[in-house]
Amino acid sequence: MATNNVKIVAVEKPLPFHFSLAAGAIAGVTEILMMYPLDVVKTRFQLSVGNAQSSIVGSFKEIIKTEGPKALYRGILPPILVEAPKRAIKFGANEQYRTLYKEKFGLPDSKTLAVATGVSAGATEALVVVSFDLVKIRLQDKRNAGKYKNTMDCVSTIMREEGFRGFFKGLEATILRHALWNGGYFGVISGVRDALPEPETKEGLLLKNFVCGSIGGTVGTILNTPFDVVKTRVQSQAVGPFKYNWAFPALGMIIREEGAAALYKGFLPKVLRLGPGGGILLVVYDFVTSYMRKTSFEGLDSNNVQYPSGSL
């Protein structure tokens, strides 16, 4: 009697959105806590003129020597506070734009749709994160050491000296930064996913997502770093007259005064954060969602897990 060997793959229902959001936020905050010093170094590189910053290691040593180890975590509260709403917009807006473009414009599932939804979601995300990024930049700026007692003092000082509009300084550059990163990220991972073989195990899926996220994040970083540099320069200006205003004129000014290479200041610490940071995101997200399923849901171990995207 012949028998057919049939491989049964157990796939459970996706987690409810609020559980997925909570897991993404926990993973994101964990990544911030572990990798944030590289973000401080990135900001210092972007604000430097000429060759003031020699290396990542040298920058770490200088910060610790002159400002103390706590300076490596200066300004960490704003990105932690915005992490959950940022994740909600990243996930929710992507799905909403995907539905809109498919229904209204008839776009099929493709790389074009992935890029379009990524760009749109990134621009939407920028409206929420711009003010938190501005406060973070002000706190990270070495020139402001001792100026602000804490995050709330920074917020109140900005409100008092620059008004409510001051919190949206650099909005144009922030929109371009997030739109380019999300467009590049989601567009590339769509193609990389198609090119890689389908994994047969959960560990294989984890590795595939890690590879896709790292490649997509690197491309997104290549695309958006010039506007990240501009955003940092614009948002660091508290008192006029302002040298940097609109994004594209600022790009031209930086190229004329410092050369085109200056548009990629901070690229290395940003990429170094991306790889390990993406791995941390995936591992923590997997652990948290697995714990949620064991404690809150009845279900089978799934090979169909949607992992959060990497950080900017």
Score class of each variant (00 low, 15 high):
N4R: 01
V6F: 10
I8G: 01
A10Q: 04
A10C: 09
L15M: 07
L15V: 09
L15G: 06
P16M: 05
A25S: 12
A27Y: 14
I32S: 12
L33P: 08
M35N: 13
P37G: 14
L38E: 07
T43P: 05
R44L: 12
F45Q: 12
F45L: 12
G50A: 11
G50C: 10
N51T: 06
Q53I: 15
F60I: 07
E62M: 11
I64E: 08
T66N: 14
L72K: 00
R74D: 00
P78E: 02
I80V: 15
E83Y: 00
K86Y: 03
R87H: 03
K90I: 09
F91S: 05
Q96W: 13
R98Y: 03
T99Q: 09
E103T: 15
K104Q: 11
G106F: 09
D109V: 07
L113H: 02
L113I: 04
L113C: 06
A114M: 06
T117S: 12
V119D: 14
S120W: 08
V128K: 07
V130N: 05
F132T: 04
D133P: 09
V135C: 02
I137D: 00
Q140T: 15
D141G: 12
R143D: 08
R143S: 08
N144T: 07
G146L: 14
M152H: 01
T157L: 10
I158M: 11
G163T: 14
I175E: 02
R177N: 15
L180V: 09
L180Y: 10
L180M: 15
N182F: 14
N182P: 08
G187N: 03
V188G: 01
R193K: 07
E200Q: 02
E200F: 02
T201I: 06
L205A: 06
C212Q: 15
G213C: 14
S214Q: 01
I215C: 08
G217L: 08
G220A: 13
I222W: 02
L223R: 14
P226G: 11
T232M: 04
G240P: 02
P241W: 00
M253K: 09
R256N: 13
E257T: 15
A261I: 11
K265C: 06
R273F: 11
L274P: 05
G279L: 03
Y285A: 09
T289A: 03
M292P: 02
F297D: 04
E298Y: 06
L300S: 05
D301N: 15
S302M: 11
Q306E: 14
S309M: 13
